[in-house]
Design a protein around this nucleic acid. Structure first.
Lengths: 346, 346
DNA sequence: GTTAGCACTCTTGAAAGTTGAGTGCTAACA
DNA sequence: TGTTAGCACTCAACTTTCAAGAGTGCTAAC
């Protein structure tokens, strides 16, 4: 037997929906009129009393209406929420325009997401943990400087300047390039081990110091992506919700967004606890970030195959419009897949 | 004859300093005790009355103390402020650690600046307007993709992927590279005109479409820097000042920081109205950004020679600690010069 | 020119009163 | 047994009132 019978469920649903709309505690009379149950407020009151005892709703104070508890929200998200299946939104247009610069795309997406939802959006660049070197080139830029260009499977390009004592002649450069490419191509960060390195240096002979520099650069490349690029947008949206906009809370939250480092734990959490749908909802204390205990956080991961994953997140008040948010995330998620897919096939 | 005699000046000075400290309207009695003028509060009152008539201070309401007007702040900044000349601060250490990635350096500086001042800091990457192409290279990354790498005089590196219908053979690639380098090296954005382009395409023959792509990329590179990379830090600091932290104002301000586009006008304004010291102070309405009319903005430009300039700015309440802010900007400015200088000589 | 004194103004905060939404409980009803 | 009407009660939120305190402007005296 379920904890909640049908009528209680309906009433809980009505309460939550109403609260999502208004942000005000909702009373028995409202429900009595609002819902199609045709029950008097007194009956509703009795049921509400039960629901409160069960922990689904709570009263901010005696003689106020009820608001959903975290448990109530959880029940709503898990059981009550209707899944919308909107058609593909306008996002696509944006993305087709500029697929050149990854950063721009991501920033743009965050923006669209924030605008669509009126909450704060964050999105991380796909991370290359298990990504491989695809192309590597050293060029002589001027007398004392080499430029190392590194391209990974995901077509991410990284550069690193290397200072040398003196210019290398063309032939040496060519040799080095061939050496580096044959040795390192197709390898991921984990696969480049001491053995590889030693062998490489040996073959480089007197230019082993340059090889060192290149490897440093390479490490830097992979490293850099570990400390994660996070794009946020709509951070100021939280000020729109009174329950979050008091000076202290707002300040803490905004800080978390500015110091993007704090968001890392959110990303990791999301990545580790993968679910079937790929969409996670953290309500209040469930969130891995302490500062967000008065918020709800909805996250999704997008996959690009070959171990490249990124995270999208929406942060808003607990009474966020979960349906809309999850719908948005879902479409964006699929959009991302197709976009990067296309990009690759081109 | 000056508008303000010595005594009025002293009193104004005392009022402003006091207000900078406390943020509260300051009354005649406070000044009478606080300053070394040995005047009774009544006398001060008379003088204050004059000062108000002259427009240097104003009353929020009858029977409150006085606060500085924009004109008062202006007078303070121009005439009253003592210039501190602190020794080189801790900034240097930070910068020496990571000179690799321009972005990181700038972001780091913004952070230090924000922490030092407790206001919001912004800093733009040096812009290459008049900067020149130093090195240019096309490489075959895989069957259908070329990578164009562009290095400018300032050692800024930009990449652009170019899709081709089919792979080019090595020889063609070499020829194209030589062609591009000989034609474009040493040229700035303005110098690449239709004549150059036509000539280039003609020489490229059947590969003129690739040349087109490279030129597009090049345009993109210069363009991209025109829509400006701005790094901000300490945006939440404005919440520390009650006069800015009410929901509406804070929201507008934070938005301006997030939508970095809005900051462009500030940068342009700063660049155009160059002064001897290179440090500008915008008080209230003087600011080119409407949202900042309740703030003061202090900006400086740093120069890297060869037409590369960037802008640093501090945004805070009108009662900001101008001395400290300007001091910070001044040292940072010189730091930036030396750092980039070193970087270049290496 | 400076100062003491006084009446006046205006914010601020506390205290007291009022309103209204909402509850819990009881008794009656179907 | 479940539902409902009615009523007393509670409590946040708002309004009003009041007193205190800071500060001013003005006048008259030094």
């Amino acid at each position: 037997m379920r904890e909640l019978d049908e009528r209680k469920t309906k009433i809980l649903n009505a309460i939550i929906r109403n609260y999502l709309d208004t942000g005000e505690p909702v009373g028995s009379r409202t429900i009595s009129k609002y819902s199609d149950l045709n029950l008097s407020s007194a009956t509703i009151r009795n049921e509400m009393s039960d629901l409160e005892e069960l922990g689904y709703i709570l009263q901010p104070h005696t003689s106020a209406g009820r608001i959903p508890s975290d448990k109530g929200y959880r029940f709503y998200v898990d059981n009550l929420m209707r899944e919308k299946n909107q058609e593909v939104s306008e996002m696509k247009e944006f993305m087709i325009e500029h697929t050149e610069r990854m950063e721009q795309v991501l920033q743009q997406m965050a923006k669209v997401l924030a605008e669509n939802t009126n909450y704060t959006a964050m999105i991380t660049a796909p991370s290359y943990h298990r990504n491989k070197v695809k192309f590597l080139q050293l060029s002589q830029v001027d007398k004392e400087q080499l430029l190392a260009v590194i391209v990974t499977e995901g077509n991410m390009v990284k550069n690193k300047m290397i200072s040398t004592r003196e210019a290398l002649d063309n032939e040496t450069l060519l040799k080095l390039n061939i050496l580096l490419n044959t040795s390192l191509n197709g390898l991921s960060a984990e696969q480049i081990n001491l053995g590889t390195i030693a062998r490489l240096k040996e073959q480089a002979g007197i230019h082993s110091n340059i090889v060192s520099d290149v490897l440093d650069a390479l490490a830097g490349v992979f490293q850099e992506d570990e400390d994660l690029e996070v794009y946020t947008s709509g951070t100021t949206n939280i000020l729109k919700y009174p329950e979050l906009s008091d000076s202290r809370k707002a300040s803490e939250l905004l800080n978390a967004f500015e110091e993007k480092k704090q968001l890392v734990s959110l990303v990791n959490e999301t990545l580790s606890s993968e679910e079937q749908t790929g969409i996670q909802v953290y309500i209040g204390d469930e969130s891995p970030i302490q500062n967000m205990k008065d918020c709800s956080v909805v996250t999704a991961t997008y996959q690009l195959g070959e171990g490249m994953t990124g995270t999208i997140g929406i942060i808003g008040p607990k009474r966020m419009d979960y349906e809309n948010v999850m719908d948005n995330l879902k479409t964006l998620k699929s959009q991302l897949d197709t976009v990067f897919q296309n990009n690759k096939e081109k």
